[in-house]
């Protein structure tokens, strides 16, 4: 049972932004995180702004240079988008193992990002794609990188009067591999123990760009930038991959919890980063053959 709360139901984005500006309230999209939290706390008195009627937040637009995803895009929408397997392979891999059908139909990309959880599965793939976020408020819009958006455990750069309205990124170029792996305590519908997304771009046999995003191993999802840097500039070898995987593990700041120990998580980061980089190197390389 949910405790009493107030629900505002704006019919337009402008109205929603006005409500956010003038009332202490929290945007409510799919509700798959916020409603269980409310129920667990059992405290009456919150105020939410329903995004259900804001049609302009729906939809995914693909252009050659950019993918623009409305904030109300659900995990199911990702799976149903025919262009997404090439526009964001890691995001599709992630969506397949995200919760169950019902939650995939309700949970939104923006909700998962704004909740700020280190185990938010949507985030590693988008971080690995250098996604940018557009936030709107009554005062205007601003765009910032997802990387800059994530501040600390359940803390983001969203101001209380702001609404995340879209997510965008450049689709991977030829010679780019973009992979995701989720390690959980069971195969279906599990909270992530370690989530890894990598992007590797290869030009003329050399790695020109590397992204390694890690979930559930620090207060926020984060990029292992030292590991990324270790990869750029030459071909990926067992040695460079090993160094990067080691660096990624070292950059992790996991905790012990009911799902796994910090030690194990670091170990799994090492193994999975190595594995995904190796696979990415092969996949990206083969695109030129």
């Amino acid at each position: 049972m949910l405790p009493p709360f107030e629900l505002l139901e704006p019919h337009s984005l402008d109205q929603a932004l006005k409500m956010l500006a003038t009332s202490e309230s929290v945007p409510l999209a799919g509700g798959t995180n916020l409603l269980p939290d409310l129920r667990a706390r059992g405290e009456a008195g919150g105020r939410f702004i329903s995004l259900a009627a804001l049609d302009q937040l729906h939809g995914i637009e693909h252009s050659d240079s950019r993918v623009l995803m409305g904030a109300r895009t659900t995990l199911s929408d990702i799976l149903h988008d025919p262009l997404m397997p090439t526009a964001a392979p890691s995001l599709v891999s992630m969506a397949k193992v995200f919760a169950g059908s019902m939650v995939r139909n309700a949970a939104t990309v923006a909700g998962n990002i704004c909740y700020g959880s280190p185990s938010a599965d949507v985030v590693p793939p988008l971080l690995s794609l250098d996604a940018e976020l557009t936030l709107a408020s009554a005062a205007g819009e601003r765009t910032l990188s997802l990387n800059d958006f994530l501040l600390d455990y359940k803390k983001t750069a969203r101001r209380p009067d702001e609404l995340l309205i879209s997510v965008s990124w450049a689709p991977p170029t030829t010679g780019t591999a973009n992979l995701f792996y989720k390690l959980g305590r069971r195969r279906g519908d599990a909270i992530t123990v370690v989530g890894v997304a990598v992007t590797i771009t290869i030009e003329k046999g050399n790695c020109t760009k590397a992204r390694i995003a890690l979930g559930s191993v620090a207060p926020t999802v984060f990029r292992a930038q030292e590991a990324e840097e270790a990869l750029v500039g030459g071909p990926l070898t067992a040695t460079t991959i090993g160094t990067a995987a080691q660096a990624a593990a070292q950059a992790s700041r996991p905790i012990d919890d009911i799902r796994a120990s910090a030690d194990y998580r670091r170990h799994a980061v090492h193994m999975l980063v190595r594995r995904l980089l190796t696979e990415a190197w092969q996949t990206a390389g083969s695109q030129h053959d």
């Binding site: 193992v97 169950g100 305590r185 069971r186 195969r187 279906g188 519908d189 599990a190 909270i191 009911i258």
Partner: peptide, 9 residues
């Protein structure tokens, strides 16, 4: 938190 096997398992 208490994880029983799902269809995927």
């Amino acid at each position: 938190e208490y994880l029983i096997p799902t269809s995927e398992d």
